[in-house]
């Protein structure tokens, strides 16, 4: 296995300016700006993150709700820009922060495959090439020209997963996609993920499901209040996480 660095975060911080009161109207804001009463509260969603991930590694990200797990994925995916620090990412990213980004209930399954695929970074031609495969994998051939609103939530999930896994990306960001869906779906997901791993994809996997982390990842990161407090072998990190008092 090559040891090429594929993701590197150097001293990355993300600071939100929280206004102490709710979003004001323009009038209030102007009045306060003039009287210099706009007060902000600095809130670090991520603070001084240093992280290096090598090609082919699978890393679980664990931590409590609101600790900054999803924010970290968003930084890597380029959705958020850090307030300070450097983000280096090499290769093609497949961000599966939620399945079916951009799905529209009024559009047909086919139309949604194209919309969703484009939003995930594929070109139209790539989707056309993979189209039959996607439909096949989703098992929704008979419904593909019906509007999405006629689908069950399980069918929508399957469609989203089929599009997201149609191409072989270098980096896959997964955020709690197993939380929904039945056992069969979970098995299908894990099988697909293992297939990607064999092909050399790098994984970042956010989950509260320790069993899924154990099954997929080798390493794990523990995040607490926007800081990485541990990054080592998964067993040790999970042990430490479970000991955190809730």
């Amino acid at each position: 296995m090559s040891l090429e660095t594929i993701i590197n975060l150097e001293d990355v911080s993300l600071k939100f300016k929280l206004q102490k009161e709710r979003t004001p109207s323009i009038k209030e804001f102007t009045v306060k700006l003039i009287t210099r009463k706009v007060s902000y509260l600095d809130f670090y969603a991520l603070k001084n993150i240093n992280l290096e991930i090598k090609k082919g590694e699978s890393v679980g990200i664990i931590g409590r709700n609101g600790s900054g797990k999803t924010t970290l994925l968003r930084i890597i995916a380029g959705i958020y820009k850090p307030t300070s620090g450097k983000v280096y990412v090499k290769g093609r990213i497949m961000p599966i922060i939620e399945l079916g980004a951009g799905f529209d209930m009024e559009l047909t399954g086919k139309e949604n495959i194209f919309l969703n695929g484009l939003l995930l970074g594929m070109t139209r031609r790539e989707i056309e090439k993979k189209y039959d495969e996607i439909v096949e994998f989703s098992g929704l051939k008979d419904f593909i020209n019906s509007p999405l609103r006629t689908y069950s939530s399980g069918m929508i999930l399957r469609l989203g997963f089929s599009v997201a896994t149609a191409i072989n990306p270098d980096i896959i960001l997964l955020d709690e996609v197993f939380a929904v869906g039945d056992e069969e779906f979970k098995k299908k997901c894990i099988a697909k993920i293992k297939e990607f791993k064999e092909n050399g994809s790098t994984f970042l996997f956010v989950s509260h499901n320790m069993n899924a982390i154990k099954e997929i990842c080798e390493m794990a990161i523990l995040i607490e209040k926007g800081k990485i407090i541990m990054y080592t072998q998964k067993e040790e990190v999970i042990k430490c996480y479970l000991k955190l008092d809730f």
Partner: peptide, 18 residues
């Protein structure tokens, strides 16, 4: 560049369809 162009067209197509 192709991706951006494709995405723009897809957004427009979606708007008009909907």
């Amino acid at each position: 560049f192709i991706w951006i162009k494709d995405l723009l067209f897809e957004f427009i197509r979606k708007d008009l369809k909907l």
